[in-house]
Design a binder for these strands. Structure first.
Length: 1005
RNA sequence: GCUCAGAUGGUGGAACUGGUAGACACGCAGGACUUAAAAUCCUGUUCCCGUAAACGGAGUGCGGGUUCGAUUCCCGCUCUGAGUACCA
């Protein structure tokens, strides 16, 4: 029979499922190997062709490890809480649990089609109560813990309470809030319970903190950063404002140092580790307080000394800065604070008020991108006030500038123009003094950040070296209470709350405004049913709609309200790899025995976009669980491989930036265009609406700065043309339906279309993602107009799809999706199938002894595939398989011994066809997955001759077969004796001769 | 701006430790089989000159360098992609 992939693949997928072929053993004499994939969010768009890239790679590796005799754990599950299901629920009223269930069914069907060797008996879903019970349980452990810096680990909060009772706050060295109280044991005991709880909250590893969110009043909801475009919601184009909110936070900063150190112990791609290092952002330096000089001097000129003594300044009202170069403190000639700094208003003198306000207004308009592009132009404004250098009382002017960010450190910088190029340019531009502070410093044309040489103009550190000076300055600052050595981390505590419905409820209730945990026996705290998935009228999160959403603690008369926010997406994924070890345990998140056996993940494959999110949070929770002796390893993922992204083709259309008042300014370009392209523009004048332009118009009128780029879904775009009717019927476009949809080349007004309707989108290659609306699925899709587009799995089968995704290139490399070469992979599998069949497609193999040439081909591929898999170079082994099959076809090989080994080697890549051939060869069904991987024998590859490339001056001229038995000398003689070589040499002896045995011969003439 | 990664035929890519650049595929061109098409098979395919072929020259983003020999190592530059919180 010809190669019938459909029947074969269906047959074996059923067989594997029925026989639980890939179920991992919990107790085994075999060594364990844990291969993990980043589990997907089951989005409504289905599994796209990018997802399987990593899954195929890990599946090949898992199957290979089974053949190599390991007990392999290779599970899969779903990160099933998340925004899209909720968004869909808001639009349709459909419960997210139902949508999620449907989506999971789709994903499962799609995953099964590709023939993965997952152990489905261990499937997890983060949105299932059996699972999120334990997410809530871990949250409770975090709530009940504090970070003890002396022990360098998390400790039980009971221990802290015991300490407070015995010794008060003295002797506690903890990671905690800034404003903690100092108290004695008696004072502690005298606190009310509420006061005690309030104080403890400042130490807990999860705690309440105020933070800002993107609030969109028109949509009545909080938006994620990527749902906001230039201050407006992407969906609908409504204004978005920043709103303060009290939220749960995780004290991940307590683990900053350990998260940093741990990177040196794990086998991860270096760029990924670098990203985490940068995110953690450790810098060693000092914090320095610059006292604010009492009466501001009218003129900023000169370096006059204030009458106030160095230590006499008001340190309470000081500006604190962090610096990594405290040794340069005598070179400070001005201070720069962020325009958003809280002291700006009070520091601004009446004379400077206008200038400062103008500058702040100018800064607010700038987007972050503009600020970056402007890095070369210096800007800033003088507040009119001064601080004093705490070491010599020198007066230092305070400036504001947008290159200082309020969010980082203290939002203030001490400027040393002689040592820092940015400060240097600033000083030059505003004519501020530049003072050299090191004898060898050259500051003629630019700043010199050297640490070599001796200090000058620097008071008591004159003549010292960098190391001595730093120590001396820090000592002095500490002595006068104006500063101290400090390690600064860039990383902030992670926000752990969402004003959403579809997430884990936080197992907390509030009494007297303070949070308390519910009793552990009441876990899981189930997500309540609500009528609508929107916030309440008063702006409370959706859970505020739930009836009786309150908790009555044991013995209490009154019921108290539950927390209304839910946990963020990363909660469930921060520990899921442990649940796979013991997925059905209802007593613990995983049993001690299971964790002892499986320990950690040996190989983790996933995208680098999770570098600073999931991968950092997971390491944090793992370290916390380790501190509590709940798990055994400090790091959860020993080896990690980044799969590259399969990119998609995105389409864009352009919306005029301002939604409501385009009709009010007749001078704007947009107005002009609208007038030109919309024939009856006067009718629309003054009405609220949205103006869209197509790419041609944007280019033609140079509107790039006036418009916002928006994604158009791939299914409503044909070539580069947007189908406008489909777009406004599409969920993403529905926000524009009412009341008017304007286009550059057409108008939609009161449901009617005007104009020719041609709307060109702009194409770009981008990450494939639902939010970019450019998703391509592996299976069939039905377009809105009913047309069915056949997917690759349907057309060529899973084995071809698996091999093709690998054949595209190195796994870690990103590439846009196309099916240009898939034909070749399919032909290869058919050719492979034919090795086992005669011209009439009848199965038949010979039992004769294999020839030398056949064995050579076989052992070449055994060696190559082993090497390739071990270094995750899957694309090159696909090529090698093609070469092997081409060779064996040329040899007319149908030898059982050779072909059976080849079946085993190929099976991790193309498991279905190999299972079929394996059973046709007479083996027991299903035994292929655990067959022994063929042993490589180097003897079959031994050659006695090698065709040396003969080069002259490094240029290859000819090939010459030379016996490998000859030594270097003998090879030289052999070459020189050759008549063709002599022709090239023109009878002369070469000046020099290089012979690398088995490689090359090169002659210099 | 900063950090990281990358740049090889018409296309995806190979060349693993400095040793025959372009493996393996796609595409394209020509041919065989066929009434025809599909499928399959065969041949060719980096560019330039010549052109029947042998042969010659150039060539791994650009400019230098080290070396008998560089896609690979070093210096400088250009461009592309990813991340980003001007990290003080």
């Amino acid at each position: 029979m010809d190669y019938q992939f459909k029947e074969i693949e269906q047959k074996w997928q059923q067989f594997w499922a029925q026989n639980q072929t890939f179920k991992a053993e919990d107790k085994s004499a075999k060594p364990k190997y844990y291969v993990l994939d980043m589990f997907p969010y089951p989005s409504g768009a289905g599994l796209h062709v990018g997802h399987p890239l990593g899954y195929i790679a890990s599946d090949i590796f898992a199957r290979y490890k089974r053949l190599k005799g390991f007990n392999v754990l290779h599970p899969m599950g779903y990160d099933s809480f998340g925004l899209p299901a909720e968004q869909y629920a808001i639009q349709t009223g459909q419960h997210p649990a139902i949508t999620t269930e449907d989506n999971i069914a789709t994903y499962r069907r799609q995953l099964d089609q590709i023939g993965f060797s997952f152990d489905w008996s261990r499937e997890v879903r983060t949105s299932s109560p059996d699972y999120y019970k334990w997410t809530q349980w871990i949250f409770m452990q975090l709530f009940n813990s504090w970070y003890d810096k002396d022990a360098d680990k998390a400790q039980s909060i009971d221990k802290l309470v015991a300490h407070f009772e015995a010794n008060g706050s003295a002797g506690i060295n903890a990671v905690c809030d800034d404003e903690i109280l100092t108290f004695t044991a008696d004072e502690w005991k005298a606190f009310s319970n509420t006061q005690q709880q309030e104080e403890l909250l400042k130490y807990r590893l999860t705690y309440l903190r105020e933070s800002t969110v993107n609030w969109c009043a028109a949509l009545g909801t909080v938006l994620a950063n990527d749902e906001v475009k230039d201050g407006f919601s992407e969906r609908g184009g409504f204004p978005v404002e920043q709103k303060k909110m009290t939220q749960w936070s995780m004290r991940i900063t307590a683990y900053a140092e350990r998260l940093l150190q741990g990177l040196d112990t794990i086998d991860w791609p270096e760029p990924l580790k670098e990203m985490q290092r940068n995110w953690i952002g450790k810098s060693i330096g000092a914090s320095v307080k610059f006292p604010i000089a009492a009466p501001p001097k009218p003129s900023p000129e000169g370096r006059a000394l204030n009458e106030v003594s160095p230590t006499g300044g008001d340190l309470e009202g000081a500006i604190e800065v962090f610096t990594t170069r405290v040794d340069t403190i005598f070179g400070v000639t001005f201070l720069v604070i962020a325009p958003e700094h809280e002291l700006v208003a009070s520091l601004t003198t009446p004379e400077q008020k206008a200038e400062i306000e103008a500058y702040i207004a100018q800064t607010k308009k700038k987007s972050e991108l503009d600020r970056m592009a402007d890095a070369k132009t210096v800007s800033g404004a003088f507040t009119g006030s001064y601080v004093l250098n705490p070491l010599n009382g020198e007066q230092i002017p305070i400036w504001i500038a947008d290159y200082v960010l309020a969010g980082y450190g203290t939002g203030a910088v001490m400027a040393v123009p002689s040592g820092d190029q940015r400060d240097y340019l600033f000083a030059k531009h505003f004519n501020l003094p530049i003072v050299p502070i090191i004898d060898i410093q050259n500051i003629e044309t630019e700043a010199d950040p050297t640490k070599e040489g001796k200090y000058i103009n620097s008071d008591f550190i004159n003549g010292l070296t960098y190391k001595e000076a730093t120590a001396a300055v820090v000592a002095k600052l500490e002595e006068i209470g104006a500063g101290k050595a400090k390690v600064n981390f860039r990383m902030r505590d992670a926000i752990f709350g969402r004003q959403r419905y579809w997430g884990e409820p936080v197992p907390v209730y509030f009494k007297d405004g303070l949070p308390y945990l519910i009793d552990e026996s009441h876990l899981p705290l189930l997500l309540p049913e609500i009528d609508k998935y929107l916030p309440t009228e008063t702006g409370e999160p959706p859970l505020g709609r739930a009836e009786d959403w309150s908790y009555r603690p044991e013995g209490a008369v009154e019921a108290y309200p539950y927390e209304l926010s839910t946990m963020p997406g990363w909660a469930g994924s921060s520990w899921y790899w442990y649940r796979y070890m013991d997925a059905h345990n209802d007593q613990e998140f995983a049993s001690k025995e299971a964790i002892e056996y499986w320990k950690d993940v040996d190989l983790y494959i996933g995208g680098s976009e999770h570098a600073t999110g999931h991968l950092l949070y997971s390491r944090f929770w793992n370290k916390f669980l380790k501190d509590l002796d709940l798990v055994v390893e400090e790091e959860p993922f020993k080896k990690l491989i980044n799969q590259g992204m399969i990119q998609g083709q995105s389409s864009f259309l352009f919306r005029l930036q301002d939604r409501t008042d385009f009709g009010n300014d007749p001078e704007t370009v947009a107005h002009y265009i609208a007038n030109k392209v919309i024939p009856n523009y006067a009718d629309f004048k003054g009405k609220p609406g949205v103006v869209f332009f197509d790419y041609e118009v944007v280019k033609q009128y140079g509107l790039q700065k006036n418009v916002v780029e928006l994604h158009a879904p791939i299914e409503v775009v044909d070539n580069a043309n947007l189908n406008i009717q489909e777009y406004i019927e599409h969920p993403i476009g529905s926000g524009y339906k009412d009341p008017i949809f304007f286009g550059a080349n057409f108008v939609f007004w009161e449901g009617e279309a005007f104009g020719d309707g041609i709307f060109k989108v702009k194409h770009e290659t981008e990450k494939m993602s639902k939010s970019k609306w450019n998703v391509v699925n592996p299976d069939d899709i039905t377009r809105p107009d009913g047309k069915v587009i056949k997917g690759v799995v349907n057309l060529y089968g899973a084995d071809t799809f698996r091999m093709y995704e690998m054949f595209l290139g190195p796994v870690e490399q990103s590439k846009p999706w196309n099916t240009n070469g898939i034909e070749g992979v399919f032909k290869f599998l058919r050719k492979f199938w034919r090795l086992f069949h005669n011209d009439a497609w009848e199965f038949g193999v010979s039992d004769a002894a294999p020839s030398k040439a056949e064995l050579k081909s076989l052992h070449k591929i055994i060696k190559k595939v082993e090497e390739d898999i071990e270094r995750f170079s899957f694309n090159t082994s696909v090529s090698s398989f093609m070469i092997a099959v081409n060779e064996l076809t040329d040899l007319k090989c149908n030898n059982r011994a050779v072909l059976q080994d080849l079946v085993i080697i190929l099976s991790p890549y193309a498991p279905h066809i190999c299972e079929e051939l394996w059973s046709l060869l007479g083996n027991a069904e299903g035994t292929l997955s655990y067959a022994p991987f063929p042993k490589f024998n180097a003897e079959y590859l031994v050659e006695d001759e090698f065709a040396y490339p003969i080069s002259i001056n490094g240029k290859m001229k000819m090939n010459l077969s030379i016996p490998l038995s000859l030594d270097v000398k003998g090879t030289e003689e052999f070459v020189l004796a050759n008549a063709d070589v002599q022709k090239y040499l023109d009878g002369k002896a070469p000046k020099k001769m290089i012979v690398v045995k088995g490689r090359i011969v090169n002659m210099v003439v």
